[in-house]
Design a protein around this nucleic acid. Structure first.
Length: 703
DNA sequence: GACTAAAATT
């Protein structure tokens, strides 16, 4: 009888234990609903069941639900109270945790340690310290938590003194100290602790690996990696990132292939590594082979496409990511925000802005600058200015973002005003500031003022002019018609002229039809950027216009031999949160094809009535021969504008983006379209913004 | 059953 009773009891208990572990497992997997189901179906719940369920809600970022559960439970023990504290801390609610800490009936070392950990996490190290010294019965964990706080605060020497004070040191404490020394770049001291350790584990070895990697000693790291007794995912990943971060992609991809388990972090690093090396297909292969992806996987792959200039692919993936319901976290939000800038998808960008505000991430200076840049690149200067104005403590980067923004939009006067305000507030401008200011002068035709600022850069602001500043000056002179002086300036430059400088000269030649000098510039550009198809096409068009067919043929051959292809021209427009992409020629793929064609026809009629005649003499624009032959009416930007006229409500500007430069014919056509339809049209091409309004463009026909 | 250390594009 007695035996049977014991067996029965054991059955019930094991049943509860089983359910409790199921609750924890489901919570770990993020399936909190399943955990709740198990909990609700249990015939008898123990305190552990309640505690596991509360921990589960905290793990799944539902502190409110966790608290409800805690308030409902009857038999709370110390572990339940401690769970509440650590749960709040995991969710970043340290002051809430402190309230619990102050009101709980009794505390033990875990309660105290959690609370110290909370302050460390918030960066409030002095709070943590005072609590630590008040703590009764500190154990090795408490000491280690405090040690971590001092290290995080960058106080290595103090941390070492603290470390020496510790009554006992275990593997974790020692490993922590090693990490601290590596962070401070003190490799010898880190190594000393490692060498003297009585016991080491995988984490210790991995700390060594990543420590050496962070201090640019990849080969030393590799040696340790070879001899470490046991490796896990993290060790492999740390080693892999050592290679990807310093651009040693061959070694990285060898290691990656050898990895027994490819962690998500490792795959993400490999994608970015390949991308940095321009190997887009390899990156995509890694992406496609991943069984599990996180938000950073998506943003990494999108970034790779964007960097390579494959906007279409980037956008496709962006859309797919949203459709899959991937929720980006802070790092990927930032990354995606800059992608939104490059792709000029204002709606996506605004959505991300809203998400940042919801999480209060927008209060960061850095984030604010990225936001401003995004709005500038999306052609919404009003929003850019709003973000700028609402922010109190601005740094140089933020001032630069808004100055450069005005400059890119051709608002020279405004840019200069902001620059003056910045100077009067005593913020020292840097090299980027001057790029913005000089190009602003150039846009607004302030030749003299530009010269003056350029002259005082070094003497007044201690900023040495670089190639970019010279490029601005060449542009400035070129716009003013002083092409000869621009060429002289290039010859007098103390630094070697780069593609941007020659590009600026070419721009000047284009406007003032200086074909000889243009040829010099174009040849230089090909030399400097042999893979940029635009330069070849430009030079080829120039030769063709002079009937120099031999040279044309030669150039084509060179292009073929080097397998240089022009990225296809495409334009896109955002309508109702969706991106509509148009490539040159046709719209048959678009569901509203017929409407668009009808709109184009109507525009054609309107334009002819307004006295428009097609201009095919854009020799100095990098358009292909084929494109020239094709009807001028079907360039991708015109298709996008036609669609915009159909869809964008009256009074709202039509924003169109193009991956190449707008051709001369389209430019004059769009000016007229803006006039006859009474609409504002904003076109961002590869170089700058064009605000078309009342038959005029903000670039003053110079781009 | 609760508290500590290692990998992650701005």
């Amino acid at each position: 009888m007695r035996v049977r009773f014991i067996l029965y009891r054991r059955y019930c208990t094991s049943n509860a234990i089983f359910s409790n572990s199921q609750i924890s497992r489901y919570a770990r997997l993020g399936q909190i609903e399943n955990a709740r189901m198990v909990f609700d179906e249990m015939p008898e719940r123990t305190t552990v069941s309640w505690n596991s369920m509360i921990a589960g809600y905290f793990q799944n970022n539902q502190p409110g639900e966790a608290r409800k559960m805690f308030d409902r439970m009857q038999l709370r023990n110390l572990v339940s109270w401690n769970g509440l504290i650590s749960g709040y801390i995991k969710n970043g609610m340290v002051s809430e945790a402190r309230k619990v800490f102050d009101s709980m009936p009794e505390r033990n070392v875990v309660s105290w340690t959690s609370m110290v950990r909370g302050y460390v996490q918030e960066g409030k190290i002095s709070e943590a310290e005072s609590l630590f010294w008040q703590m009764p019965g500190k154990n090795v964990v408490s000491w280690t938590v405090m040690l971590g706080g001092l290290i995080q605060d960058g106080r290595v020497d103090e941390a070492r003194r603290f470390y020496d004070l510790m009554p006992e040191k275990d593997v974790v404490a020692r490993t922590n100290m090693i990490g601290g020394y590596f962070q401070a770049g003190r490799l010898a001291e880190a190594r000393e602790i490692f060498d003297e350790m009585p016991r080491r584990n995988v984490v210790t070895w991995t700390t060594m690996i990543s420590g050496y990697v962070q201090n640019q000693r990849v080969d030393v790291a590799r040696k340790l990696f070879e001899v470490m007794p046991e490796k896990n995912e993290v060790s492999w990943t740390a080693m892999l990132m050592g290679y990807t971060q310093c651009g040693r992609i061959t070694e990285a991809s060898e290691l990656f292939r050898a990895m027994p388990v490819k962690s998500v972090v490792a795959c993400n690093a490999m994608i970015l590594g390949y991308g940095h090396n321009g190997e887009v297909e390899e990156a995509r292969q890694v992406f496609d082979n991943m069984r599990e992806k996180d938000d950073q996987t998506w943003s990494a792959m999108i970034k790779v496409y964007e960097r390579k200039g494959l906007e279409l692919e980037a956008l496709k993936l962006f859309t797919l990511m949203q459709r899959e319901g991937v929720r980006p976290n802070f790092p990927s939000l930032i990354s995606l925000l800059s992608v939104c800038g490059s792709l000029a998808t204002l709606d996506h960008g605004t959505q991300i802005h809203a998400q940042l505000v919801r999480n209060q991430f927008d209060l960061d200076v850095y984030v604010a600058s990225v936001l401003i840049t995004m709005y500038v690149k999306c052609g919404n200067l009003v929003k850019a200015k709003q973000v700028f104005d609402r922010f109190g403590e601005r740094d140089v980067v933020m001032w630069n973002s808004i100055i450069t923004g005005y400059a890119q939009h051709g608002l020279g006067e405004e840019a200069l005003q902001v620059f003056q305000k910045m100077c009067s507030l005593g913020i020292p401008p840097d090299d980027i500031t001057f790029i913005g200011v000089l190009s602003a002068c150039s846009y607004s035709g302030k030749v003299e003022q530009g010269h003056e600022i350029f002259g005082t850069m070094k003497s007044k602001y201690q900023v040495e002019p670089g190639t970019a500043h010279y490029a601005c000056m060449v542009d400035l002179l070129g716009r003013a018609g002083q092409v000869k002086q621009a060429m002289d300036l290039i010859e007098k430059m103390p630094v070697e002229a780069d593609a941007i400088v020659w590009g600026a000269l070419l721009g000047a030649c284009r406007t003032h039809m200086k074909l000889d000098l243009a040829e010099v510039a174009a040849k230089k550009l090909i030399q400097l950027e042999p893979h940029n198809a635009g330069h070849y096409i430009l030079l080829s068009n120039m030769y063709a216009s002079k009937g120099r067919w031999h040279e044309v043929a030669d150039l084509r051959k060179t292009m073929g031999a080097k397998s240089i292809t022009k990225s296809p021209g495409c334009s896109w427009i955002e309508v109702e949160h969706k991106v509509h992409m148009f490539t040159w020629g046709e719209t048959t793929g678009h569901p509203e094809h017929v409407m668009i064609m009808r709109m184009l026809e109507r525009l054609g009629v309107l334009l002819r009535e307004a006295g428009y005649c097609p201009d095919s003499s854009f020799v100095l624009h990098d358009v292909d021969e084929e494109e020239k032959v094709q009807s001028l009416g079907y360039h991708s930007e015109k298709l996008a504008i036609a669609y915009g006229l159909l869809k964008v409500p009256q009074g709202m500007p039509i924003r169109v983006m193009k991956n190449l430069r707008v051709c001369g014919d389209c430019h004059s056509a769009i000016k007229l379209i803006a006039k006859v339809t009474g609409r504002e049209i904003i076109v961002r091409d590869a170089n700058r913004f064009h605000h078309f309004k009342d038959g005029l463009c903000s670039c003053r026909d110079y781009w």
